[in-house]
Design a protein around this nucleic acid. Structure first.
Lengths: 208, 208
DNA sequence: GGTGTTGAAGCACGTTCGTGCTAAAAACTA
DNA sequence: TAGTTTTTAGCACGAACGTGCTTCAACACC
């Protein structure tokens, strides 16, 4: 049998190297040679775990989606535990939405990588399936959140979908600005915008 | 003197070729050879008008910013002509915000190119200055729009800035989704989200 | 203890990239 | 017509890329 090596752990190490490279130098720099260097391995070793460069990228994309989705769903569970319209629920909602933003180093790396892959997927067909999974997963979480925040759970179905898409767009825009214009879009500004949106949101279903 | 060639027009043709390549195959494919092919020129010819590859990219970035800024400012002037809170003004506002979205072929190409350059600017320092100019210019337009929509022009200064950033983030998020998930974010969905946001916006300053 | 499977490493090939440089072609001036 | 300057075209070089294929060392099992 082989050398004692946990193949799955090794793959995760390589993926972490991919993340660091994308966050620091962009996705186009995530070549096999660069990744191998960053992971402290030889090119042949990386290729032993990933059949091709595309394989490595798709696997990394999938990994970052799983990380983000995991955070979002556990945060959503925390929201569901709180009683509706309570201050505790509001805090849980802010915490959930904060998972989208690059508020600490780990979140920033994931956000960078996530954005890079989603944009790359527009061009590279191999990434398209994962990009769609990413969108579906995150949209589902935001959709459930909107349902929870909608008073009584009633409300027009169409309005709920629209509000979910609106919240999702705002969060993606905030994340983008925080990544690209960090000196303008500070953490405080993010927080202000977020609370303003939540306030605007709670009013809309009632006005219908 | 030279061959009868309008140098500025020739540069614009090359820039158009850059736009087509970025929109179709991504920014990393916008190499000198590809651009020259797309423009129907030789590599040497392109290099005659642009000192380096970076030069070409920076010039193209600047060009797309000017195009977008021009559209926005003329649309903003149209908004300013209408009487506040009138249906005509509302239409003009929707038209202005529609300039952000890939609603037709030309707007889609510009949006693609704009997004690609802004994200590339995070990595490539040569693009940073133009990226900041882009952000400043667009933020100024959106800021003036928020001022126009704020009843009486009064309202807390901080609130206005927050609302401007919120609108900008939402528009960028909408644009992004329309580019990356066109099957989910249709033109109709864009319109719905946009009107929902405008409704939420008009309520906030009054509630303060 | 021998043996075979597997992780790790590296070479070689063809392609593409940016760029410095040279030379032909074209068009206006004298 | 001869000369000058701009435009166009192309070659050559070094670097980086993905990938097929080979080689070496290490460990588990019979």
């Amino acid at each position: 049998m082989p050398k004692i090596v946990d193949a799955e752990a090794r793959r995760q190490e390589v993926v972490q190297a991919v993340f660091r490279i994308i966050a620091g130098d962009g996705l186009e720099r995530a070549s096999l040679r660069e990744v191998a260097d960053e992971a402290g391995l030889a090119v042949g070793s990386v290729r032993h775990y990933f059949a091709s460069s595309d394989d490595l990228l798709v696997f990394s994309f999938s990994a970052v989606i799983d990380r983000i989705a995991g955070r979002l769903e556990s945060a959503l569970a925390a929201v569901e535990k709180e009683t509706p319209a309570s201050p505790e629920q509001h805090l849980a909602v802010v915490n959930l939405l904060g998972q989208f933003l690059p508020l600490d180093e780990e979140l920033a790396v994931d956000a960078c990588v996530w954005m890079a892959f989603r944009h790359a997927a527009r061009i590279k067909p191999v990434l398209a399936a994962e990009a769609e999974r990413s969108h579906r997963t995150v949209a589902a979480v935001v959709g459930r959140l909107i349902m929870l925040l909608s008073p009584g759970g009633a409300g027009d179905q169409q309005t709920l979908v629209t509000e979910a898409e609106r919240l999702l767009a705002t969060m993606d825009g905030l994340c983008m600005h925080a990544l690209l214009q960090p000196e303008w879009m500070t953490a405080e500004m993010c927080s202000d915008v977020l609370t303003a949106h939540l306030r605007s949101l709670s009013g809309v279903p009632a006005a219908r």
